[in-house]
């Protein structure tokens, strides 16, 4: 869908993007992660053809990115806003027409969206008469009204109250189900695990990590497990198929240990070793959260 190849963007003394390459597959929900100032917005602006890269190329559906793709992309910028003194219906139609929709088609689709999001009574209202949350909702509709194939959302959940954030999240997922590819930038990791298929992590203008969320998490697993058992505390002598990292006991005879597998051992070996001794309640692999990976990666670099 979107192939970003070796993008370099230089602003005077500051290099915003340095040789960044990212592949976004069709139908994905792709998360662009990174701390503030990493270069996410610069990259998003380049994809939207707001600015041009100094070197590198972007391919959209196999074609070199050009003006004809503008109507197939929907963009919700981080810094968002609408014309304050313009009526909301008229404004939505105007923005959709700038994306290439006809007036009639824009009106028809807008009615559907307004119905769906309980906004029908807003049509004649001016933006300045709406609450902040309502404005965000309207802006989201403006982003997707022309039914873009690629929807780019820069920090989409900032500024939404939890209720509206949930509504928007559901809408994003539904659009994705209907075939739209979603690219969104965020530094909120919990939304990444919930929504994204793949991510790329950008830090200090370099891409430092990318891949599917599952793949990345798996690669950051380090054969660590939690085991919960009931019985008298285990005694370890060094012949176990694992090393003990942590041990916690509670009053009702239940104990939790955190272990790391020795080389060439598996979780089955662990169970075989423990089961004769105690009653095992749970064995769970410790998978690092995206947040931990993110922090670890960013700190590693800097």
């Amino acid at each position: 869908m979107l192939s970003i190849r070796n993008i370099v963007k230089q602003y005077a003394a500051h290099r915003a993007l340095d040789d960044v390459s990212i592949e976004v597959k069709s139908g994905q929900v792709f998360g662009l992660l990174g701390p503030n100032g990493a270069g996410k917005t610069s990259l998003i602006r380049i994809i939207n053809q707001i600015t041009a890269p100094d070197s590198g190329e972007i391919y959209f559906d196999g074609e070199k990115l050009n003006q004809s793709h503008i109507g197939r992309i929907g963009y919700l910028p981080e810094e968002r806003g609408l014309y304050k003194k313009m009526e909301i219906g008229e404004q939505m139609i105007y923005l959709a027409r700038l994306k290439g929709l006809s007036r009639d088609e824009a009106t028809r689709r807008l009615k559907v969206w307004f119905e769906k999001l309980d906004m029908t009574s807003w049509w004649k209202k001016k933006i300045e008469e709406l609450s902040k949350g309502m404005q965000q909702k309207a802006q989201f509709v403006a982003t997707v009204l022309h039914e873009p194939d690629l929807i780019i959302l820069d920090e989409p959940f900032s500024g939404f109250d939890p209720v509206n954030a949930e509504i928007i999240k559901d809408e994003i997922l539904e659009l994705n189900k209907n075939g739209a590819t979603i690219l969104f930038s965020t530094h909120r990791m919990e939304s990444v695990e919930e929504l994204c298929d793949s991510i790329a992590l950008i830090n200090k203008s370099h891409k430092i990590l990318d891949g599917t969320v599952k793949g990345i998490k798996n690669s950051y697993k380090n054969s660590t497990y939690f085991v919960e058992y009931i019985g008298s505390p285990l005694i370890f002598n060094g012949n176990e198929p694992f090393d003990l990292l942590e041990e916690k006991s509670s009053e009702d005879d239940s104990h939790v240990i955190k272990i790391k597998l020795k080389e060439r051992s598996t979780s089955n070996d662990v169970l075989q070793y423990i089961i004769p001794k105690v009653q095992v309640n749970m064995l769970q692999e410790v998978v690092p959260s995206m947040n931990e990976i993110f922090i670890e990666k960013v700190n590693q670099i800097s």
Binding site: I50, I70, P77, G81, L82, Y83, L95, L98, T143
Partner: peptide, 16 residues
């Protein structure tokens, strides 16, 4: 200035 302060400008220039 209105377009810049209301931040609409980035939406518009993603289209034109």
């Amino acid at each position: 200035i209105e377009e810049k302060t209301s931040r609409i400008v980035e939406v518009v220039i993603s289209s034109v």
